[in-house]
Design a protein around this nucleic acid. Sequence first.
DNA 1: ACAAAAGTGTTTGGAGTACACCCATGA
DNA 2: TCATGGGTGTACTCCAAACACTTTTGT
Lengths: 233, 233
Amino acid sequence: MSNENTYNPHVSVDCVVFGFDSDNLKVLLIERTIKEQNESYNDKKLPGSIILNDENLDEAASRVLTELTGLKNIYLSQFRSFGGPERTKNPRDILWLENTTQLKIGRIVTVAYVALIKIDRKILSNSEETSANWYDLNDVTKMKMAFDHADIINRGLEYIRHRMDIEPHLLFELLPRKFTISQLRTLYDTVHQTRSDVRNFQKKVAQWSYVVALEELEEGVPHRAARLYKYKK
Amino acid sequence: MSNENTYNPHVSVDCVVFGFDSDNLKVLLIERTIKEQNESYNDKKLPGSIILNDENLDEAASRVLTELTGLKNIYLSQFRSFGGPERTKNPRDILWLENTTQLKIGRIVTVAYVALIKIDRKILSNSEETSANWYDLNDVTKMKMAFDHADIINRGLEYIRHRMDIEPHLLFELLPRKFTISQLRTLYDTVHQTRSDVRNFQKKVAQWSYVVALEELEEGVPHRAARLYKYKK
DNA sequence: ACAAAAGTGTTTGGAGTACACCCATGA
DNA sequence: TCATGGGTGTACTCCAAACACTTTTGT
């Protein structure tokens, strides 16, 4: 089977992968190098791929994630498609596409997903030619990005903020298995762009039945150790 | 320019157009007839189109709507893409696609939009070969539908319910310019799948500053006439 | 002993919910 | 005068928000 049959070079998926380092939201980006005539050019891109001819969109997105991280059971949700003709106009992007896919590329419509992963599970297959790294969301605006990926990240962020408002469960996709209430609160506040009161927050969490206290405390902190909690069901 | 250059036969848009007839939610569907060897087959489809090579997704969706209704300034929002390889597998659908587009069609990924329109503005160009009509949402499950359009409608409904929860403004896209509180309440309850109390609902609306009372009453009703309201800003 | 973060209660205002009767109008 | 929907008020509950001090532990 030739490449022309296995790939569908008109539609791709891109994943905005979020993580949380107990302090800030992070995105997983891939370093891209484009060799031009004399010098080479560097920027960042979202993990993504052209879809295969026999897979559906969700499958393509999970494939991208497993190839990249080696992890399974990652929260993944489609949030929007981007398909303006101008998004595949930049000569650098075209050059890169045609080099990496070995296909003649016209316009590509991309279906964007957000993924949430526990940042401590760094079982990234960070080995091969792709080098993926976490970047602080606040720094993304300052970075050179491929295609319209800066846009896509912003939209993904909006989307996930919205979702987490409705489904607080999703917060726990970003926290380590055992966490303290203040880690949870920092994350909550980062996502909601608020600065919530410690006592009120404790009360709120107390009525989330899926947050259960462990008989265990934090270790190695230079002050009173906090109780650990886990997410159940 | 040949058809191959002006159309992109890999990506389409489909619009789930909602209306409200003071009683139930309705969807705008197009009658489709497929001529097979002996007899012809009838079903319904969503208004949609393959995208043109120089337009973006939002433009394609508005184009579909203006071609269909002649209206401008319609609320329109992308909500999800559908792209499984199985969605363009039914031989009837393939036949119809190739007949109407005159193009060889492989897999089509479709980007779905919801649109909200005031059902009384029936300035539909219901003339040409396309005959579009309003159908009760509850009847849709019983009807034969093209492709995965039944799915798309359900997802669109979920989406718009969600949205209207967050942005009550959107309700007014479905109501006539002048409406009564009980029309608004029926719509609200239909959308939220609730049965709200008359008095409590009046109170709620009273604090929506964008709902303003007019010095005007309903006419031609066989009982006490209700006050009319309008939506402002 | 001190620095640093953990943990804990009470009060107040606003929003949602439950609930029943009189009013205006056309037929 | 009757049938049909229009329109109105009060009491209770629950949730969100404001607000300050004591406890524990490592250095």
